[in-house]
C-alpha cells in the first residue's frame, strides 16, 4: 500500500516504466530495477484514488520490496509525501480465471457494480461490495492469460469467500487451480517469473527494454545503459519447441548454434522454465538466447551434459498461447 500526495511521483522512481499518469481505477504492470540496472521484481500497481496505490510484488519478494521502497522513501527522497504499509496480511485474495470468470463473479459481486467488459475493462480496479455488502476489492488482471480477475476480501472472510466462489461456480464446473497449473499457463503466455528474474537479467533481456523510461529518474535507469548490458548480441527472452515433439526441453539446458562445438565459448544461452503444454500437446520452454528476438524460426541444439539430453529445438516467440491477448480483453 502506497499512499500520499506524491505517491505517483514516488512510484515513478521505483518502477522503470511510467506511473505518473495512471488513471484512478486502473492497474498497470510495473518493472522494478535494482540500482545496477538488473530486474529486481515485477508486479502490478492499481490506483484506487489519486493518492492511493495498491502495489503487488512477487510473493517471496514482498518483504525485500518493502525494504527497498522504505530505503528510497527515507534515504533518497525524504521529503516526498508518501506513506507505506504492508497490507499483505489484511486481505485474502483469489484469482478467478477462465472464460466464465465474469459470469461467476456476477453471482457474488453485489448487483450495483457493473462487471461488463465496458464497465470494468481489462486492467480496471475498484473498491466493491460482495455477498450482500462486504467491503472488497476487484482487479481485472491476469497472470494465467485467461479472462481473469483477482478479488480480495478481509482475511477473516477468506475461508467463507472461497466456499462462496466454489459454490457459485458449480454450474460452470469451476475447479481450484494451484501454482503448478499457473506455472504451466504463465510459460504458455511467456510471462517472466523468478526463473527469469534471476538476478542477472535486465529489462532488455526480458524483452522490456523499451519500457525503461528515459524521460524520468528511476532506480536502475542510468546503470542499465552500461555498455556490457547493451551489447548487440545480448540475451533475449524467447520460446523453444522441440523439433521432435516427443522430446522435452528441460530447464537448465544450454543452447548451441548447429555445427558449433559444445563448449562454454560457444554457449548461446540457456533454458529457464519448461513444462508440458496441454494446449500445444508437446513440451515447451522459455529462456534466454543471444539475439534471440532475431532468431525466431532457427533450429538450435539443446544440450544438457548432466542429464544427457542432446537434441534440436526451434526458436519461437515466448507467447505460445493467445499472443494478441484476446482472452484477457474478452
Amino acid at each position: 500500500m502506497c499512499k500520499g500526495l506524491t505517491s505517483a511521483t514516488f512510484l515513478n522512481k521505483i518502477y522503470c516504466n511510467a506511473f505518473g499518469k495512471l488513471a484512478v481505477g486502473k492497474t498497470r504492470y510495473g518493472l522494478m530495477l535494482r540500482e545496477d540496472g538488473i530486474a529486481m521484481d515485477d508486479g502490478t500497481a492499481g490506483r484506487l484514488a489519486e493518492d492511493h496505490f495498491v502495489v503487488t510484488t512477487t510473493t517471496a519478494n514482498a518483504a525485500s520490496v518493502l525494504r527497498h521502497m522504505e530505503f528510497a522513501r527515507q534515504c533518497l527522497w525524504p521529503d516526498l509525501d508518501v506513506q507505506l504499509i504492508s497490507t499483505t496480511e489484511a486481505w485474502a485474495q483469489y484469482a478467478v480465471a477462465g472464460p466464465n470468470a465474469r459470469k461467476l463473479l456476477e453471482k457474488v459481486v453485489d448487483p450495483e457494480f457493473d462487471l461488463s467488459n465496458e464497465g470494468f475493462p481489462f486492467m480496471a480496479c475498484s473498491n466493491i461490495k460482495v455477498c450482500g455488502g462486504l467491503r472488497a476489492r476487484l482487479f481485472r488482471i491476469s497472470f494465467s492469460g485467461e479472462l481473469a480477475y483477482e478479488i480480495a476480501v478481509p482475511t477473516r472472510y477468506g475461508d467463507a469467500m472461497i466456499r462462496e466462489l466454489m459454490q457459485a461456480g458449480e454450474e460452470f464446473e469451476v475447479v481450484p487451480y494451484g501454482t503448478e497449473a499457473l506455472g504451466v499457463m504463465r510459460i504458455e503466455k511467456g510471462h517472466a517469473a523468478g526463473n527469469e528474474l534471476n538476478g542477472t537479467t535486465t529489462a532488455l533481456n526480458l524483452g522490456m527494454g523499451k519500457m525503461v523510461s528515459k524521460k524520468k529518474d528511476s532506480i536502475g535507469s542510468i546503470l542499465s545503459e552500461r555498455e556490457g548490458l547493451k551489447s548487440e548480441d545480448a540475451l533475449k527472452l524467447v520460446g523453444f519447441k522441440p523439433v521432435d515433439p516427443k522430446n522435452p526441453v528441460p530447464a537448465g539446458s544450454h543452447l548451441m548454434t548447429l555445427g558449433d562445438p559444445v563448449d562454454a565459448a560457444h554457449d548461446q544461452g540457456y533454458v529457464t522454465s519448461a513444462c508440458y503444454s496441454p494446449s500445444l500437446k508437446c513440451s515447451i520452454a522459455i529462456g534466454y538466447l543471444k539475439s534471440g528476438d532475431a532468431r525466431k524460426g532457427e533450429i538450435i541444439r539443446l544440450v544438457s551434459p548432466l542429464t544427457g539430453f542432446d537434441h534440436n529445438v526451434e526458436v519461437v516467440s515466448a507467447h505460445f498461447v493467445d499472443p494478441e491477448g484476446e482472452r484477457l480483453r474478452a
Partner: peptide, 11 residues
C-alpha cells in the same frame, strides 16, 4: 537516516 539525508541536501 532521513535527517542525515535532508542534511546532505536530499530534500
Amino acid at each position: 537516516a532521513s535527517d542525515v539525508a535532508r542534511g546532505r541536501g536530499r530534500s
